[in-house]
Design a binder for these strands. Structure first.
Lengths: 348, 348
DNA sequence: CTGAAAGCGCTTACAG
DNA sequence: CTGAAAGCGCTTACAG
């Protein structure tokens, strides 16, 4: 099956290949009638430009790189989903890449990839987007970058983000409103700048309420389930344990929940638990987790948009803020503690 | 930064571009000394061939397509991880694709993608690999395909698989050995042929043991958490409820666990629960889930290998079987029911 | 507004 | 075993 080329289309439409190219790429300087006629032929013949020829002759390609630190985490899942949907709608393809920070030659390997791939753009997810040296490599290779939720040098590249700090405040205020005063906090992986922002939101909400957080109620985690489990064991062991624990992400919150179950502490009656992310697993827990819905899917889609329809370069880096949402479920809501049947999820 | 081209390398090595090409691609007909010398120059200059030029001039590209039905499921996560690691080691890149079966024009869209991408190979994950019409499209576009765990026409393409049926037998035998006789079963999504194989393994183990499974103890699920939850509610409502439930995957087993928690049924004392997959979340449950470890990461890596180092075409389709493993955890082990602290996971 | 020419960096097909 | 020529299917740069 021989694929159609731009020449076939040109012949059929009675114009030159260059004109077809103009129409396909939405360039200016084509008479409306001609543009329409060509577009019709393209559609009729179901013509699809050869991506490699495009990539070879122009500097930009149709491939968008999605860079993850840990492609197996639930966060990566959401981002992948959002990016995939949008990329496909825009005729782009997604190449998944990791950065091998654990190897001394990660720079060389990244450069190899970039040389070989000629990406039309790259999305950097946390915490990758916070590495100056890494961003410099993309700049050197002229690969446009959009960062998701970067924490440093925010004006260096376009970005999509949400207000982690305000979200953590909101969650803390929810717990305070439920009557909790001894609220424990499990910090996230220090490599992620979001960890600090969430901590600040928690701290501010507490002090604004007139409570100085008890450092014996603060534990360090690293965003993994296991770190949440260990943190909770420490926090709950004390003489005056917290009545609520706010973990900086859902996986850790699940760890806290497991520690509570293991210690036969009733949730939420004796211990309220809150997470952050609204990962799929937040609804697979028992009781279901109160959390902050991060618009990860939407942020990823927006990042694709920023790469594909780049706004004119007026020196100002676009920054798109997306809203978070407090999702209150049974893990922090005493009146619901006896609820036997979880609400059905909508869709999958 | 101007990337090196094959000409630069050729000049430096004192040979023609064609010879460099031969060395890079491991073709025959190059004197060993020359081969070595060229290889050295390539390494020294850190030369990376332009993937688009390659893709344009040859029919095959360095891109491998990874096709998912549901890229957000935990299974997809494991496969992605395995494929990513291997692909990167072999200098290939991974393009993630979904098939839009929910649209009437999914065929056209898939063909567009294939025309544009010129994939060097494709990995089809279940249940995508069981669609005859879909495989035909790949054949028409000359894209080599490796299927993971296909259930139909197994000799049509190379494949990587594990014995779901034997694994389900093993799990069932484990539950029988724990003294269970009234064992409930939650079937998986009928679109996945693995669902049937797991059911058969269960059925055989039961009948071999002399027990005809009680159909009131069998429920239909679809591999989602929610379906497991609903299935368990049905199974546990009966007059003579099962003392153990074997769910066809971990997400559903988690649903069963949640239903049990909601109904205040002690696990594993009053109800043992087993899953299938050994997804990450199997260890995030309380109690942790007994399950079958599917070598998803390894199967994905093996699939990449089959695509890259294709065995000579002697008419026999390669089929690689990987071993499963029974992983017994607290959800089915009464003696461990009082264990308060879950074992630390190794690594993340 | 439109098109003819040149070229992107490889590989294929062919010649020696 | 090695290389010169042609070509893959687009886009860039230029001319009109």
């Amino acid at each position: 099956m021989k694929p159609l080329t731009i020449k076939d289309v040109a012949r059929q439409a009675g114009v030159s290949p260059k004109t077809v190219s103009r129409v396909i790429n939405g360039e200016a300087h084509v008479r409306p009638e001609v543009r329409e006629a060509v577009a019709r032929v393209v559609a009729e013949m179901n013509y699809q430009p050869n991506a490699f020829a495009r990539g070879l002759s122009s500097t930009r390609s149709f491939l968008i790189g999605l860079f993850f630190d840990d492609p197996a985490c639930s966060y990566a899942n959401d981002v992948l989903l959002g990016a995939l949907g949008r990329a496909r709608a825009l005729g782009r393809h997604l190449v998944i890449e990791t950065v091998a920070f654990d190897r001394a030659d990660w720079r060389e390997r990244l450069e190899e990839s970039l040389r070989g791939l000629r990406l039309g753009g790259a999305i950097l997810t946390p915490p990758i987007g916070d590495r100056d040296d890494l961003i410099a490599i993309f700049e050197r290779h002229d690969v446009p970058v959009v960062r998701i939720a970067p924490g440093t040098h925010t004006a260096r590249t376009p970005r999509v983000w949400m207000d982690d700090r305000a979200a953590a405040r909101t969650m803390t205020e929810h717990l305070l409103a439920q009557g909790h005063r001894r609220i424990g906090f499990v910090r996230g992986n220090p490599q992620h700048t979001a960890s600090e922002r969430r901590w600040m939101g928690f701290y501010e909400a507490m002090t604004d309420f007139g409570i100085v957080p008890d450092m014996a109620h603060v534990a360090q985690g690293d965003f993994t389930f296991r770190s949440g489990l260990l943190a909770a064991e420490t926090l709950l062991r004390g003489a005056n344990p917290p009545s609520a624990i706010f973990a900086s992400n859902d996986e850790m919150a699940l760890g806290v929940l497991t520690a509570a179950s293991a210690a036969q502490i009733a949730v939420p009656q004796s211990l309220a638990i809150a997470g952050f992310d609204d990962a799929q697993l937040a609804r697979m827990a028992w009781p279901q987790l109160t959390t902050i819905r991060q618009p990860n899917v939407e942020m990823a889609a927006a990042a694709i948009d920023l790469l594909v329809d780049r706004p004119p370069d007026d020196g100002v880096m676009p920054a798109l803020e997306l809203p978070y949402e407090l999702v209150v479920r049974a893990s922090s809501r005493v009146e619901d503690a006896r609820e036997v049947q979880p609400k059905p999820q909508t869709g999958r």
